[in-house]
Each structure stands twice: as C-alpha cells, then as structure tokens.
Simulated scan of single mutants.
Amino acid sequence: MQKLTINIATNLTNTQNQNFVLSTRALFPYLVLMVVLTNSLHRANKANLVIFGVQLNVLFGVSLTILAIISPTVRLLNLLFSTITLATITKQRFYSSILCISDSRYRSNSALLYY
C-alpha cells in the first residue's frame, strides 16, 4: 500500500528522479506540530521560547519550500498548505491579541472603580 501511494504520488508530481521532493509533503505535519507547540507557548507567555520557536518554524518551512522548488506540483501544494497554516495562525493571534487588549482595558477600568 505504501509503495503504491509513493508510486502514484511520484507519477502525479513527475518526480521520478527526485524522490526526496515528496518528503516535503511527508514532513509538513511535523511543521504543523511545531507551529501548534509554538502557539501553545505563545498562550503561556513564554516570550523567549516563542521567538525561538517562530525562528525554527520559519527555517523549517523555508527548507521545505526550497526542497519543493524542483516540482511545480509539489511547490504549489507546499505554498497552498503554508498559506493556510499562516492564515490560521494569524487569525488566532489576532483574535487573542484583541481579547488581551479588551481584557486589559476591562481590568484597568474595573480597578479604577474600586479606588
């Protein structure tokens, strides 16, 4: 079953001589896992670890994109999945920053009411 999947993917992407290009699709879930871990560190306010995690994620994502640059089909899939992942992260961080701002305004206003 695994060989059949690899053969189909190799034929679809036209990468018979460059089998390593398909590894970018196999390694993408690890990038998503790293992004989820970095996002959980962001919520836990671990600033130094978040900065390191973001740098590591960018380096790994760029490496996958460089490997995928040989095949147009794999490059398209890589950029599509990367865009979806980036949009999801941006949306989550945007809404969490709005919640933090509104929460801090509420706290400051409620603190003023007690004084």
Rank of each mutant, 00 (worst) to 15 (best):
30 Y>H: 10
25 R>T: 11
42 H>M: 06
37 L>A: 14
68 A>K: 00
6 I>W: 01
20 F>T: 02
77 L>S: 13
102 S>R: 06
57 N>D: 03
107 R>I: 04
16 Q>S: 13
22 L>V: 08
104 S>G: 09
90 T>D: 01
44 A>D: 14
38 T>H: 06
79 L>T: 10
68 A>I: 00
71 S>D: 00
10 T>C: 10
1 M>P: 05
89 I>M: 04
12 L>I: 12
6 I>D: 01
64 L>H: 04
54 V>G: 02
47 A>T: 14
109 N>C: 03
34 M>L: 10
33 L>K: 14
35 V>S: 07
81 F>P: 07
16 Q>Y: 14
93 R>N: 08
16 Q>V: 13
74 V>F: 01
84 I>S: 06
95 Y>V: 06
100 C>I: 10
81 F>D: 05
92 Q>K: 05
99 L>R: 12
68 A>P: 03
6 I>Q: 01
28 F>W: 01
46 K>W: 14
64 L>G: 09
43 R>A: 15
20 F>E: 01
90 T>Y: 00
41 L>C: 12
104 S>T: 13
51 I>Q: 13
30 Y>E: 08
83 T>P: 07
10 T>N: 08
40 S>Y: 14
47 A>V: 14
78 N>R: 11
35 V>P: 12
93 R>V: 03
115 Y>N: 09
15 T>K: 00
90 T>I: 01
12 L>C: 11
9 A>N: 00
94 F>Q: 00
49 L>V: 04
100 C>V: 12
15 T>W: 00
17 N>T: 11
24 T>F: 08
3 K>H: 07
23 S>G: 15
104 S>I: 03
34 M>I: 03
19 N>G: 13
13 T>E: 02
74 V>D: 00
32 V>I: 14
54 V>R: 00
76 L>G: 12
36 V>W: 09
81 F>A: 05
97 S>E: 05
47 A>Y: 13
64 L>E: 02
60 F>K: 02
16 Q>M: 10
93 R>S: 07
114 Y>H: 13
105 R>M: 11
75 R>D: 03
98 I>P: 07
114 Y>A: 11
115 Y>A: 09
58 V>K: 09
81 F>Q: 02
35 V>C: 06
62 V>P: 04
111 A>P: 02
73 T>M: 13
98 I>G: 12
103 D>P: 13
34 M>Y: 05
75 R>W: 05
85 T>F: 05
22 L>I: 07
30 Y>T: 11
105 R>W: 11
86 L>C: 07
29 P>D: 04
57 N>H: 02
63 S>W: 01
102 S>V: 08
96 S>V: 06
39 N>L: 01
71 S>T: 01
104 S>V: 05
17 N>G: 07
9 A>L: 01
41 L>Q: 15
14 N>V: 03
43 R>Q: 15
11 N>W: 06
89 I>N: 02
114 Y>W: 11
20 F>W: 03
76 L>Q: 13
97 S>R: 02
65 T>M: 09
82 S>F: 05
11 N>D: 10
114 Y>M: 11
114 Y>K: 15
51 I>F: 08
49 L>C: 11
59 L>F: 06
42 H>K: 05
21 V>D: 03
69 I>F: 15
51 I>P: 09
32 V>D: 14
50 V>I: 06
81 F>I: 00
72 P>N: 00
26 A>F: 09
21 V>P: 15
103 D>E: 08
